[in-house]
Design a protein around this nucleic acid. Structure first.
Lengths: 201, 201
DNA sequence: ATTTGCTTTCAGAAGGTATTGAAATTTGGT
DNA sequence: ACCAAATTTCAATACCTTCTGAAAGCAAAT
């Protein structure tokens, strides 16, 4: 029933590859990272290459990316010419690194693009700018104010999203866990957490 | 300086395509959704096809996916044979739909796979199971208990993540916004939000 | 029952991303 | 300074996802 260790490691390595590829990184990156993480030991490019059956170039390129995401680090050994690689051990830390990096690369440029686009529109007619969207009764798609309202709603949403990420990044693991518990506890009580907690301030 | 409306719409449509493609859906889905959203009007497959310069089949398939994600709905009109499509108007609602769906399709299966893999390992030797990981002094990668600990740490992490998503899905937009404000207010005060709020319970 | 207008399907084409492998470059040891 | 081991680069290739367009399917209207 019990597979040998390598077998278990291999399964895990593949699963992790799948999970992270859903997540915007690529499969090989996930596999390398998983291998380093699960063995817990510094490995050389050669070892990774052999264990994962992938080419030298592939290993090299993906290790480089992993380092740029901050989830793998290089290690040197005196009198040894090879470089060794180790995974960041704390899941919380690498997850944050990945989130931070993705936000920078992917969300922020889009937010700017949105603002630029919005700037192309004539300024809102006074009276048309109710805070959220004023859903037009049965408006045609040709009213600039309607368009503007929609765009702004969308931008607002992306900004809230971005803000949420920001918040998340500032949390320590401990605080995050506590927050989770708190929210879990509050939820069947009608989930007016925010109101209550704010009141307390 | 002010582009005409169509131009602005087109820009937005493309930007939204890029943003969602970062997000696991595909570009065309994003464009169709954006177009429906921004015009605010029911459109037929033909209109979408022409406006976006894409093929009939492409429109049909992507509308289908969009509906399966719950971000676009079909509309019928009496005495009209065509089907019209409209975007879900509330960003909060469609975002939740997408998150919920992705979790179901992508995260949950992986969590199961993890458990299966862990089950292949011999049960932990007593005394080796300190709650988090007990980082081996300089352990070889061949100790089953070390491997088990690492796998469990990873699984634990994925589960926390999953739980976070769960929490998020239960929130109303209003509560979420309030929570954000609360957190923002607390953060420079040392971010011991969770502790304080828990204390109050 | 047939026609007509619309929608879906799907095999093949296009486009995009990941991987290889060998050449070029870098690096540390002598 | 030189050598040899280790690493990086990159053009060619393999692989995978998306898109097209024509054919098949379906359903309201006559």
């Amino acid at each position: 029933m019990t597979g040998n260790l390598d077998e278990v490691q291999d399964r895990f390595v593949n699963e992790w590859g799948d999970l992270v590829s859903v997540w915007g990184l690529n499969k090989t990156m996930g596999q390398i990272h998983a291998l380093l993480y699960v063995t817990g030991q510094p490995l050389t490019a050669d070892e990774i290459m052999e264990r994962l059956n992938i080419s030298r170039g592939n290993v090299s390129m993906n290790l480089r990316s992993l380092m740029s995401w901050g989830v793998v680090h290089r290690q040197h050994r005196k009198g040894d010419r090879k470089q060794y690689f180790v995974a960041e051990e704390d899941p919380w830390r690498w997850f944050k690194n990945v989130v931070r990096e993705r936000r920078k690369r992917e969300i922020e440029p889009i937010i700017e693009a949105f603002s630029d686009t919005l700037a192309l529109l004539p300024p809102a007619r006074p009276g048309t700018s109710g805070p959220p969207i004023a859903p037009p009764p049965d408006a045609s798609g040709d009213d600039p104010d309607v368009l503007r309202a929609r765009l702004e709603q969308m931008r607002g949403f992306v900004e809230v999203f971005n803000r949420g990420i920001d918040m998340f990044l500032r949390f320590s693991r401990e605080d995050f866990n506590e927050l989770m518990e708190l929210l879990a506890a509050t939820q069947e009580a009608g989930s007016d957490l925010a109101r209550r907690a704010l009141a307390q301030k």
